[in-house]
Structure formats: C-alpha cells, structure tokens
C-alpha cells in the first residue's frame, strides 16, 4: 500500500484490490488522547463518514464510491483528478454550489467544506472527506459549510456558488440568514486557508 496522504486524523493509502485501484482511509490512533475517547471518536467518525458518503451519493452528489467498511477504515473508489485547492483550472463553483444544495437538501452537513476536500475530475467536481460530517437539519451546520468555503475562495467564485446553492436548495433562505448572523457575531474574520 502506498501512502497518499497523512492528514490530521487519517492516513490515506492507495491499494490494489482485484486489479483495481482502491483508496483506503484509516483513522490512526492518537496517543495524546485517552484510548477510550480516541477509539470512540475514530469508530463513530468512520461510521458517520461512510453513512454521509452514502447519503450524499443517494442525493445525486458525486462522491467516491464506497466499497467496504472496517472498524477504523473505509475502502473506496480512487478518484482521478486534483484537489480544488491545488487545481490549475478555475473551479466550477456553480456545480459545487449545486452539489452542496443537494447535500443539504438531504440533510448531509459536510463539516469541512473547503477546497482541500473537493477533487476536480475530468467529469466534474467530486466531494471527498466526509470525516466531520453529520446528518442533521441544523441551519447552523449548513451555514458553517457555506462559511468555510466562503472564507477560502474569492468573492466572485463565492457569488457563483451561492447563486447555484440558492436555486438548488429550497431551504437556502434560512441558511443564508443564519450565515449572516454568524458573521455578525463578529468572531469570523475573513481567513484564507494557506
């Protein structure tokens, strides 16, 4: 297995299974936190991530196909392309807005919706890393999905995204007003992810 990435909470490997490329995402143990808490977190997050991927996929969002599930690991389709944050060509923000609209319509909150977690493939954007996802109706959670992306992309791209999101999701009005509230709380300055 070749390591593709070493993230804050998971290692992502590329493996060959039955002749095809498979991505294996393994949540490794964190020695700095107590074992009970650590295992609880990793187990629930692994399950939650798989569940959110399936829900998003059912809602018509392009995500890696789920192959198999272990206690702390997810086996999934290898997506070809580059991350939006590294992509050469400009992102397709209309499409990304529509994808977020579909996810929120199905009450899938991504939880870490940034250009580091969207892959640009020849056939369009694909959302990855549902590691902090939740299935919930929470307007706050949905607004934070928008906010995280808004903070990481340019104004024009965000407007494109927001427009597509607005027309794709019936509940978007409430989410936009919650987003405005959150921004007014003053805790959020524009911060660009480096």
């Amino acid at each position: 297995m070749r390591k593709l990435s070493e993230g804050a909470e998971a290692r992502v490997y590329l493996a060959k299974m039955f002749g095809s490329n498979v991505v294996v995402k393994v949540r490794h143990a964190k020695a700095y936190r107590i074992m009970e808490l650590d295992e609880n977190l990793r187990r629930t997050r692994t399950r939650r991530e798989a569940k959110a991927m399936v829900r998003a996929s059912e809602a018509g969002v392009r995500v890696p196909e789920l192959f198999a599930l272990g206690e702390f690991s997810i086996y999934m389709e290898k997506v070809t392309g580059s991350l939006l944050k590294d992509a050469r060509q400009r992102g397709r923000y209309g499409e990304i807005g529509r994808m977020l609209a579909k996810m929120h319509g199905a009450n899938v909150i991504h939880g870490d919706f940034t250009p580091a977690n969207i892959m640009i493939t020849p056939s369009g954007p694909c959302v990855i890393d549902f590691g902090l996802s939740e299935i919930s109706e929470s307007a706050e959670g949905k607004a934070i999905d928008l906010l995280l992306m808004k903070r990481s992309i340019g104004d024009r791209d965000y407007r494109t995204l927001a427009e597509a999101y607005g027309s794709g999701y019936a509940g978007s009005k409430q989410i936009f007003s919650r987003l405005a509230d959150i921004e007014k709380r003053g805790r959020y300055q524009i911060r660009t992810l480096m």
């Binding site: 107590i34 808490l37 609880n40 977190l41 939880g111 870490d112 940034t114 934070i144 995280l148």
Partner: peptide, 11 residues
C-alpha cells in the same frame, strides 16, 4: 475515569 461526553470540532 472516563465518561463519554459531547465532542465538537469543526475544522
């Protein structure tokens, strides 16, 4: 001893 409690991190 440990009792599981709500854990909230977003990014």
């Amino acid at each position: 001893h440990y009792i599981p409690m709500p854990y909230t991190v977003k990014g």
